[in-house]
Simulated scan of single mutants.
Amino acid sequence: MLETSARLLRLLSLLQTPRDWTGDDLATRLDVTPRTIRNDVERLRRLGYPVHATRGPAGGYRLGAGSSLPPLLLDDEEAVAVTVGLRTAAGGSLAGVEESSLSALAKLEQVLPPRLRRRVAALGEYTVTSAATPGPRVAPDLLTLLAGVCRDRERLRFDYRTHGDDASRRDVEPYRLVNRGRRWYLIAWDTDREDWRTFRVDRMTPRVPTGPRFTPRPLPEEDLAAYVGRGVREAREPFTARVTVYAPAGTVVQRLGYWGRPETVEPLDGESCRVTFGADSPGSMARWLAVLDADFDASDSPELAAAVREQAARYARAANPGSA
């Protein structure tokens, strides 16, 4: 039989599992009587752990939320995951959390057993992190506000600045937050434009108080991460064109890399395919077409064809600088 202090820690570990435990289940796990479980639950409550109990055949014990945060028990994998997460948060896209992340990290690493400390140290020693890509940072309280209005179905008013630095005021029904790398996006129904919109969170300045509650609508699509990614690409690539490439579709996908998204390459036969490109201008698309290392037909787009001719003339001059 476990000593009282060890048994309380074991009981607390079981209660932190998100499920209801009957007294008999806990007594069997800890090899004690149900009466001992009831006494131990009272001890945990006096220590500040909000253990809820329900009566009846379907009742049991569950650890709930209280007015203050009591100590938590983590297993080995959870401790490693939290440690790595804190290290990442110390240099991530959230502003104002570096100091608190480092403080929590120091406390956690101080009590890690040697076997876990070695695992975490190995992750740090043998993992190479590239220099952080410059990008906007978002205050945690702004994300908390947005998550709250999404949860509570409350309309939100905010000032917004577009990529072109145009200012506007928006009134929306917020639905989801999406994180892509160092950027956060809000998916919302714009009540003035009567359409779905995606907003960069770092360009938003909310106006409080929030608005009235709204009735939720069906989301624009199930995969919201793909929905945001497609919108970001369309905003970044306003010019599109379809090009026939005289090479197998699989070869083109390999050579395109990032651009070779499966939905943009349509096989025509075993030796050719049609590719839909997106770029910020015809000139940049013409330059990227060189990576295909294959013949292609850009005549369907007059703007792209003109940019290809200009690029070809530049290459011709580079090959024979003395020509007229």
Rank of each mutant, 00 (worst) to 15 (best):
L2K: 11
L2H: 13
A6T: 11
R10D: 09
Q16K: 07
W21S: 10
G23F: 05
D24A: 13
A27W: 06
T28F: 03
T28A: 11
D31F: 01
D31V: 07
D31G: 08
V32T: 11
V32N: 09
I37K: 11
I37C: 12
I37R: 14
V41Y: 09
V41D: 14
E42I: 06
L44F: 08
R46H: 15
R46S: 15
R46L: 15
H52V: 13
T54L: 15
A58R: 15
Y61N: 12
R62C: 15
L63S: 15
G64T: 15
S68P: 00
S68C: 06
P70D: 09
P71L: 12
L74G: 05
A81M: 09
V82P: 02
R87W: 05
T88K: 03
A89F: 02
A90T: 05
G91Q: 07
G92Y: 05
S93Y: 02
A95L: 11
A95F: 07
A95R: 15
A95H: 11
G96A: 10
S100I: 13
S101A: 15
A104Y: 01
L105I: 04
L105S: 13
A106H: 10
L112W: 08
P114E: 13
R115T: 05
L116M: 07
R118D: 12
R118C: 01
V120Q: 05
T127P: 06
T127I: 04
V128G: 07
T129D: 08
S130C: 10
A131H: 13
A131Q: 14
A139S: 10
D141G: 04
L143K: 08
L146M: 08
A147P: 03
R153P: 02
E154I: 02
R155E: 15
F158S: 05
F158H: 06
Y160V: 06
T162A: 13
R169W: 00
R169H: 10
R170V: 01
V172Y: 12
V172L: 06
L177D: 10
N179P: 00
N179Q: 14
R180D: 05
R182W: 04
A188Y: 05
A188P: 09
D190M: 01
R197Q: 08
T198Q: 06
R200F: 03
D202C: 03
V208P: 04
T210F: 12
R213G: 15
F214Q: 03
T215S: 09
E222Y: 02
E222V: 12
A225T: 11
Y227L: 07
G229M: 00
V232H: 02
V232E: 13
A235H: 12
R236Q: 13
T240I: 00
A241W: 04
R242G: 10
R242I: 02
T244Q: 11
V245D: 07
Y246T: 04
Y246I: 02
A247P: 02
V252H: 03
R255V: 02
E263W: 12
L268Y: 01
D269S: 01
G270Q: 03
E271K: 10
E271L: 06
C273M: 09
T276M: 03
G278W: 00
D280L: 01
D280N: 05
P282K: 01
P282V: 02
L292K: 10
D295Q: 14
A298M: 00
P302Q: 01
P302G: 01
E303H: 04
V308D: 00
R314E: 14
R314K: 10
A316S: 03
A318T: 03
N320A: 13
